[in-house]
Design a protein around this nucleic acid. Structure first.
Length: 552
RNA sequence: GGCUCCAUGGUCAAGCGGUCAAGACACCGCCCUUUCACGGCGGUAACUCGGGUUCGAUUCCCGAUGGAGUCACCA
């Protein structure tokens, strides 16, 4: 068989050579140790936390080392394409602080290693497929779907590994004339890799590959033995081929991808070998998991877990800094420790390493995210919090935009109890914050909690509020204000010190806490809130008196 | 089913042959306190099992079990 002739028959329109492309995309001129990473999403327009998790690794690796991080659109499956997906991907990631140096953008490509959209790279893939054919390392395969299914049936009956390989790769043995005839007859065909794997050998004698993974150490697995499709009947490459060609030509140094790619790693290794290229360093990340209904761990799924969509977090109003902080704590086991030691350091000062990444899948933990978010938001100024909230509301809750009419008012609210050595940690995410402070706005104010049972039992609710209102002076300082409450407490037969009440519950109707709670419920509608005096100062005298009067 | 990956408390995790087996979140209790928080102190709770190797295994090897992933002209 004259493979060169076959290559010309198959790819008459390909005139460029591999050397042309090598010259077009030379080695990158980067500082020593600089890493080149890429994100290769398929344009389904859906990104979830798992994608962000991986993107974060790419971003850190590249930007920490003075390297390059680029975006490549992997749209070799036209069935998946969703209009506007590129925009969604870029914007979503940007929101969470992930920015690309190179690659596809809304305005077209940026960078000199393009095209960055796989569907535009047809000729490149075909050029390298042609090279493989011309060297006898790949061949056209005319097997139909039915024929492949039949082969599979036979294999199952014989208890053999299913797939196209060795003697089952029937098109391997086609002569030039047969191929030419098939093509003339218009038969569709794919290009398959002619694998070196020999399934007739006993398992112990089959070749194994050893790949150094930056996260998992040395991977020892059987070499590929399948004649994997590299070019589909449409001339478009499969993921495997596109990955190898692109990451070589785009000079990617580190390929970060989920562990679900581990089983196909041998294919990629063989492809790199056959093409005569040095493979990149692989970083197979553990999957982010979720607990399913039966209580089992399972990989995050696009279809089943819409609440893990990135949009969900934007919707809820999680601050991007909090999400970043959370992701880093599950990404690098030493981050949490570092953060405790460096509470005020910029997150980018943390040295991220693949070695500190976990190899087992972590369960997504909302509790932890919330806890981290509290600390992160504490460090954000009221002014910035105001802007963040306003932007969020504009997008997701336009009906509350009036909250932002009085900037000084809202900023004071957001800052309640946040100063001092033991600041409050009330803020978690936008949605929750709005609910939390809603009583500051008359249209959202409502009585949500009941008055304390002790006071209700004694029938003192109105009495407490009446006396409180009578003695109320808006200009009182905090101490004077509280002394008045003490006076009311004593007067009505409640304990001024909660301890006294605890020791002698029979001697009092309740304690000062119960009295305060009455005021709290009347003013805020809830039993829980920050300091009452502080809130009254923000609420203003008029509103305070008005709310108290309602119960008299 | 074949292949691959993974295996320390409810969750995330330190550990890399000798530890009373860290820490964080969650939970519980106490303290502080005008409520709620915040904070402080304390507590419940773990090396999947079985064989080796070794003076000694959570740690190394093998096997089992369990969980996950993957077996496409999808990525």
């Amino acid at each position: 068989m004259d493979y060169n002739k076959l290559a010309e028959l198959l790819f008459p329109h390909i005139t460029k050579t591999p050397e042309d492309y090598e010259a077009l995309y030379p080695e990158r001129q980067l500082p020593e140790g600089a890493k080149v990473t890429r994100l290769g999403p398929s344009p389904t327009g859906f990104i979830h936390l798992g994608n962000l998790y991986g993107a974060f690794v790419d971003e850190r690796l590249a930007h920490q080392s003075g390297g390059t991080f680029f975006l490549r659109i992997e749209d070799t499956d036209d069935k998946r394409y969703v209009e506007g997906a590129v925009e969604i991907i870029i914007n979503s990631l940007r929101f969470f602080g992930i920015n690309f140096d190179e690659g596809a953008t809304m305005e077209g490509d940026m960078g000199s290693y393009g095209d960055y959209t796989q569907s535009n790279r047809g000729e490149i893939y075909q050029c390298f497929a042609k090279k493989l054919v011309s060297e006898g390392k790949a061949y056209p395969c005319f097997l139909t779907e039915d024929q492949i299914a039949e082969i599979r049936c036979q294999q199952e009956a014989m208890k053999l590994t299913p797939g196209i390989y060795c003697q089952f790769a029937k098109c391997r043995v086609l002569t030039y004339e047969q191929i030419e005839e098939n093509i003339k007859a218009g038969m569709p065909y794919v290009i398959r890799l002619k694998s070196d794997g020999d399934m007739s050998l006993p398992e112990e004698q089959r070749r194994r590959i050893h790949v150094q993974d930056a996260i998992r150490g040395i991977l020892d697995m059987p070499a590929n033995d399948q004649d994997t499709v590299i070019l589909k009947a449409t001339g478009i490459p499969t993921y495997h081929f596109a990955h190898v060609v692109d990451d070589h030509l785009m000079r990617t140094t580190h390929v970060v991808r989920g562990a679900e790619w581990l089983p196909s790693l041998p294919i990629h290794v063989e492809l790199f070998e056959k093409l005569g290229w040095e493979p990149p360093i692989y970083c197979h990340t553990a999957q982010l998991m979720k607990l399913d209904e039966e209580g089992n761990k399972r990989k995050l799924s696009k279809r089943k877990d819409p609440e893990l969509s990135l949009d969900y977090y934007r919707n809820q109003g999680y601050h991007p800094a909090a999400v970043r902080e959370y992701l880093l704590t599950i990404l690098n086991s030493n981050f949490e420790e570092w953060r405790i030691a460096n509470p005020d350091a910029d997150i980018d000062e943390f040295e991220f390493t693949t070695e500190k990444m976990s190899t087992s899948g972590a369960l997504f933990d909302l509790n932890k995210l919330n806890d981290i978010s509290k600390d992160v938001l504490l460090k954000i100024s009221a002014a910035d919090l105001f802007d963040f909230l306003k932007n969020w509301a504009a997008e997701f809750k336009p009906e509350i935009m009036h909250m932002f009419d009085d900037r000084a008012y809202l900023e004071k609210i957001l800052d309640i109890g946040r100063d001092g050595a033991k600041p409050r940690k009330d803020h978690i995410y936008a949605q929750q914050m709005v609910e939390n402070i809603s009583y500051f706005f008359d249209d959202m104010f409502k009585i949500e909690d009941s008055f304390p049972a002790e006071v209700e039992a004694a029938g003192d609710t109105a009495a407490i509020l009446t006396k409180y209102l009578e003695t109320y002076d808006h200009s009182d300082d905090q101490e004077t204000w509280f002394n008045k409450i003490r006076a009311i407490t004593e007067e009505l037969g409640y304990a001024v010190k909660p301890k006294d009440f605890k020791r002698n519950p029979d001697q009092y109707k309740g304690h000062v806490g119960h009295v305060s709670t009455v005021i709290r419920v009347a003013l805020m509608g809830r039993q829980q809130s920050p300091d009452v005096w502080e809130i009254q100062q923000i609420l203003g005298e008029e509103r305070t008196r008005e709310r108290l009067s309602r119960f008299i």
